[in-house]
Amino acid sequence: MTLEFDCPAPSGRHEHIILGHGSGGKLGADLVARMFLSVFGNAAEDAAACAGAGRLAFTTDAFVVRPIFFPGGDIGRLAIAGTVNDLAVSGALPRYVSAAFILEEGLAMADLERIVASMRATCEEAGVVLVAGDTKVVDRGKGDRVFITTSGIGFLPQGRALSISAAQPGDRVLVSGTLGDHGIAILSQREGLEFDTALTSDVQPLADLAQAILQTCSSVRCMRDPTRGGLAGVLHDLATASRVGVRLHEQAVPLAPAVRAACELLGLDPLHVASEGRLVAVAPADEAEGLLAAMRRHPRGRESAIVGEVVADHAGTVVLRSRIGGERVVRPLAGEQLPRIC
């Protein structure tokens, strides 16, 4: 007979988040040192001094996705990519991000480690440095495991001014890949709605793709990432701000078969479903084909497509020309299609 002794966890090592981790005392300091500083490797100052040139671009975004781990990503990757992409589509080169964590008492330490490692990897992929952070802990039942807010700073070269109000009739609308993969991947995991699919979220940072687009086509009018509200929301904003119409072609919109099937089954319009690793670009007609070729050469834009054009008619309205030849108006999403997807 052999006896096995369990080595008790050393004090200060916890399997789960407890309220004391948010106290600002020793436990909190340990958590920051062990969980965050060891991974991101920056001084624990309250504010970071950031170096860079050009005009500043600054953004912030909160992430409350459920579940926190989903096919193709997790809340950490999403929190970095989401903020990086907001900077990237503005034409800025993303450089620095901060992250604030709201942790629920009882969160498994192993889960937090996974999330933090994923954030680190995504930062490297995006070419940004995480330079500041904060942690709070709330009572069990007052949060949902973990919420993350990230802010980001990027630098805009002199003279670059992408604008949602710059579209002109004749311009082409391009997307960098299949739409709605993220929204449907999340949906496929939801309680009461689980369905088997090989679909994974498209969540990824787009800084390099956005830079490649700007290098190929300096006259690109604007870029946006079609997150909540989907392509319909982005194009509706464009049509309103630029006082133009937009015509989409149903056949040209790239959709993964699983997204098409799930939308059919659940009565969703894929034009309303969120992506977290795609961008929409609007470019002058004579440069669109060249830009499309450049986007398709980029590893994050292999399935890029020209999906429609900007028109002078019906300003403020997006229409979709169907396979059959009829046209219908594409409205922006009314209310929540699906809560907490990012």
């Binding site: 059959i324 009829g326 046209e327 219908r328």
Partner: peptide, 8 residues
Amino acid sequence: VKYSLDEL
């Protein structure tokens, strides 16, 4: 209505 069949 989605495919505008009534108009067609």
